[in-house]
Design a protein around this nucleic acid. Structure first.
Lengths: 213, 213
DNA sequence: GTATGGTTTAACCGTATGGTTAAATATTTC
DNA sequence: GAAATATTTAACCATACGGTTAAACCATAC
């Protein structure tokens, strides 16, 4: 677990710190923590490496800040969106759409989260794992309420959570690979293009159909 | 794209080469390509680093061999299993179960594939991407046949593929994190335990329900 | 114009890391 | 027992890389 050694005001970073964080997000997303070099982030940000250390700190500090920024208030957003509705189906829709919206807003999220999970969460900050736990607890509540109202069948909440985030993150994470393929039939390309913006809705619809009685 | 510089007989590796490949799979899975050091693999294998270079070659060669070994004949297995049945629902079940069975047989597969996709496939051998393309082409065929027979609704094949592998790989990839959590209610733990071995069936069932008319 | 904070320069340091090597040793094969 | 192959030893090399630093320069505020 990497500690945030320097408390950067993420709500109001200076211009230089913001440039560094933007560059760091992009490079960490593309290459992962170990595959990323500090020199590379500095070059991408258009600042000197010494500035990076002056403004933010070491690589661990930078990465922890990136994780914090990319995840944002995901857990809180999900909790608020789900609380606003009462019907379990609407709650599940809100849940899925929040996750998809956050991935839309932060394109670095899918690759970063995929690598973190691949690494067994060994380098995820504890607060992030707690956030994930709170999100899954929300889903457990939704599925339980839906089951009691005989809307949903009995399901494994972990599996459903992994289905939701797995679908969204894999779909978004594989876009660069897919966009390089030339063999894809045009009708499927067209169908895929229509999905833009509506990924959350589509995934929500599929998941709801999957667990409905 | 990493090239296999040395053609190791993967069907019949020597004892030492086998030890090295086993160690390499484990460490690459846990730490990723860049996070893994050659010394570490050698130590894990219980051989000298010079032996590793003698038997297999450089880090890229080793990694390419690991990818090849972990993926095995996944695409071919899927093609054969799907061809054995005629009903689109049974085809889809065979498709999902093959993917799940391969992940069962190769626990290193989820983390490695997650990282490769997170990296945009930049370091995946071309033959692997071609395998993935052929697998998705099989799914396109299944969904099309099912749609023509009015069993399945119209769906986005990429999204369905990502739903299938996303669910399986995320579920398996997050087991180390999940097993460390203490807040999980016992009934959910029990439900989760019952899933062991039946992940393919469960995911197939969910996906089929999701796309049925 | 001075003071202050931010940024760059241009190294530098210590450690790491992939990869190599010739000789020595060990193991296997015939 | 000799020959061939495998493995280890014990370095070594070149480059990389995270992180640091004091002085110089730049931008901004007063």
């Amino acid at each position: 677990m990497r500690l945030i050694k320097k408390n950067i005001d993420l709500e109001k970073p200076g211009k230089t710190a913001e440039k560094i964080l933007v560059a760091a997000r992009a490079v960490f997303a593309e290459k992962g923590y170990s595959g990323t070099h500090v020199d590379e982030i500095a070059e991408c940000a258009g600042v000197n490496k010494a500035t990076l250390y002056y403004q933010i700190g070491d690589k661990d500090t930078l990465y922890a800040n990136v994780i914090h920024q990319v995840l944002g208030n995901t857990a809180q957003n999900i909790a608020e969106a789900v609380a606003k509705v009462d019907d379990p189906i609407e709650k599940l829709k809100a849940y899925v759409n929040c996750i998809a919206a956050n991935a839309d807003k932060n394109p670095e999220l899918p690759p970063i989260m995929m690598r973190e999970i691949a690494g067994g969460g060994a380098t995820l900050p504890l607060v992030v794992i707690e956030d994930i736990a709170s999100v899954i607890t929300i889903l457990i509540g939704i599925l339980d309420k839906g089951k009691k109202q005989e809307i949903f069948t009995e399901t494994n909440p972990f599996l459903i959570h992994m289905m939701i985030i797995g679908t969204i993150l894999f779909y978004k994470g594989s876009v660069p690979i897919k966009d390089r393929q030339l063999w894809i039939p045009n009708d499927i390309k067209a169908h895929d293009k229509r999905l833009k913006g509506g990924l959350g809705d589509e995934v929500a619809q599929l998941v709801i159909k999957a667990i409905k009685r």
